[in-house]
Amino acid sequence: MSISVQHISKSFKEVKAINNISFEVKEGELFGLIGPDGAGKTTIFRILTTLLFSDKGTANVAGFDVIDNYKDIRNHVGYMPGRFSLYQDLTVEENLEFFATIFGTTIKENYDLIKDIYIQIEPFKTRRAGKLSGGMKQKLALCCALIHKPKVLFLDEPTTGVDPVSRKEFWEILKRLQKKGITILVSTPYMDEAALCDRIALIQEGEILEIDTPKEITKHYPKAIYNVKANNMYKLINSLKKYEHHYSVYPFGEYVHYTDKRTNFSTDILKNYLVENQFSDIEIIKTTPSIEDTFMELAK
């Protein structure tokens, strides 16, 4: 096991940030911690990177205990904390050189590891890091975390606030890194990114809801979900919520995800209800649950 977390709990003053968290990450796995802000992701990361003590429980990273052998962990992991935390007034090149030096290596030594990523920001290598766009900052931070060839990579919300294009590129990079044998623990609030991980843990308010592969997790969804559409989204939502048999009504882009309390539900019944309420252009199609649907169901 590359990362092993056993019954970790942590409180800050009276607030319980995480409660009895356990999970394991295999070597070379791309593991996602999926959950919104305040779920406890950053706290878990800080405990694993030895920056915080847990109140209860134990944890191991690359075979080292987070408390007793913290120095070994600090020498061997790559860490990308939540906010952009590189030196804004140093250039791209200077930042990279600094991190290489303090880890006792050079840019050249492990260049092949960061090559694919660095090429994208190389044209800007003399630019101050503070002047880079969000997507480029993330790439630079990733390079700096990788430059010493860590066995385990901790990425805390690396794509938050970054546009979808850069996010997609970033995950493509992660997939390629994974092939080189690096264990990667990533956290993200974006449910669509969860699908790209080998396994994920859904977290909400300090508790783990479920751990499994993305596919298996969606199979956990207990009900059938229907995509519903009509001529007025707002009125549709209200109307469905007033419908006595509804179990859940959630807007999902151009459709509303609707689930019914009854097991013997048929779409015609619903259609009639909507027609009665003066809706037109009605569409009701069964759809497969997404991770987001599952998350919301588990979080209730």
Binding site: K71, N75, S85, I102, C144
Partner: peptide, 11 residues
């Protein structure tokens, strides 16, 4: 600035 975190998780 938050750069302290990274300095700490280093040798």
């Amino acid at each position: 600035l938050g750069t302290m975190e990274i300095l700490l998780v280093s040798p």
